[in-house]
């Protein structure tokens, strides 16, 4: 698990040099405090330089890091007493989507999210976070359950996309996604969506309709992958970096398009550098937004959600 991205190299090099110096100082008893402090300041500067002006492609890379915290990691830190439930009651249990119940500051909630693997074996089980129709149908079943028991729904979005395979087609991938959009737009309980990594097209949107939609700073959300776009535009998937530059897929871009309500800041270098602080920021956001939504009468809630969707797009 080597997380080093090209643009991070100077940071990592300096960090390890400082580590060496500290080791040397403690072993040899030589006082290097001043030198180390100077290097630390320099490190802060380099970090700020490297991370404060990330290009869209660098954010794509961060969003896809294997170390990036997944839905279950955030659930563990944010939700108390989480109990996972399985299966769509129709065909199977899809491990690319997880869901269940727990409490958030004493309030019962239903939590659902795409789930990527943390290593190769786990990723094979999770199908790299790419759901089949049964995954979306499990999500819908749990949403309907939440509606029945008047629990708000918290959604974590993190998928390269809905799986493009033979069996997914046979079992109605398109219909499964469409039905989620249809039902989520009128679900009689609040929904808050947090895009935590990759928001890959329809496969992401199928868990992405909500009263509040926010994104972590380095997450992405797009209609097609940069690789997909570059292979269509230039017949060359290796030009994905250029494609990422034109497609406006960063959290900030989506905020400017009024597609999302908030960008949640990540620690310098990405959410994986400090999972606790990222979790606590997500939790603060949920605790701030949920009570207001739960106080609304259902008709107003659904009317507002409709108007939010209704405002999407631009024309002349």
């Amino acid at each position: 698990m080597n997380s080093s991205l090209n643009f991070e190299k100077p940071v990592i090099e300096l960090e390890s040099k400082i580590g060496d110096l500290e080791n040397f100082a403690s072993v040899s008893g030589v006082n290097l405090e001043n030198e180390i402090n100077i290097l630390r300041k320099k490190l802060d500067n380099i970090k700020n330089d490297a991370y404060s002006n990330l290009t869209p492609w660098q954010r794509v890379k961060i969003a896809r890091l294997q170390e990036r915290p997944t839905s279950l990691e955030y659930i563990e830190k944010i939700i108390y007493g989480f109990i996972e439930f399985h299966g769509d009651r129709l065909y199977a249990d899809d491990h690319a989507i997880v869901g269940g119940i727990g409490t958030l500051k004493g309030t019962p909630v239903t939590v659902i999210g795409h789930q990527k693997g943390k290593n190769t074996n786990d990723n094979i089980k999770r199908n790299f976070g790419m759901p089949h129709p049964e995954g979306y149908r499990k999500a819908l079943r749990l949403m309907k359950q939440a509606e029945k028991f008047k629990r708000p729904v918290i959604m974590f979005v993190d998928t390269p996309g809905a799986y493009c395979g033979l069996e997914a087609e046979e079992r109605g991938q398109g219909e499964a996604i469409a039905l989620n959009l249809f039902e989520m737009s009128r679900l009689k309980t609040p929904i808050i969506v947090i895009v935590i990594g990759e928001g890959g097209s329809g496969g992401a949107l199928a868990l992405g309709i909500g009263d509040r939609v926010c994104m972590l700073e380095n997450s992405i959300y797009s209609v097609i992958s940069p690789e997909g776009l570059s292979s269509i535009l230039w017949k060359d998937a290796s030009l994905a970096e250029e494609a990422a530059g034109i497609m406006r897929l960063t959290a900030q871009d989506l905020f400017e398009f009024n597609v999302i309500d908030k960008v949640i800041k990540e620690p310098l270098g990405g959410a994986h550098k400090d999972v606790d602080s990222t979790s606590s920021k997500i939790k603060q956001y949920l605790i701030k937004e949920l009570p207001g939504l739960m106080d609304l009468d259902i008709d107003t809630l659904i009317q507002n959600r409709y108007e939010k969707l209704r405002g999407m797009g631009t024309w002349g």
Partner: peptide
């Protein structure tokens, strides 16, 4: 881009 995706919703 993303605005097309949102037309689905």
């Amino acid at each position: 881009g993303i605005l097309s995706l949102m037309q689905m919703g």
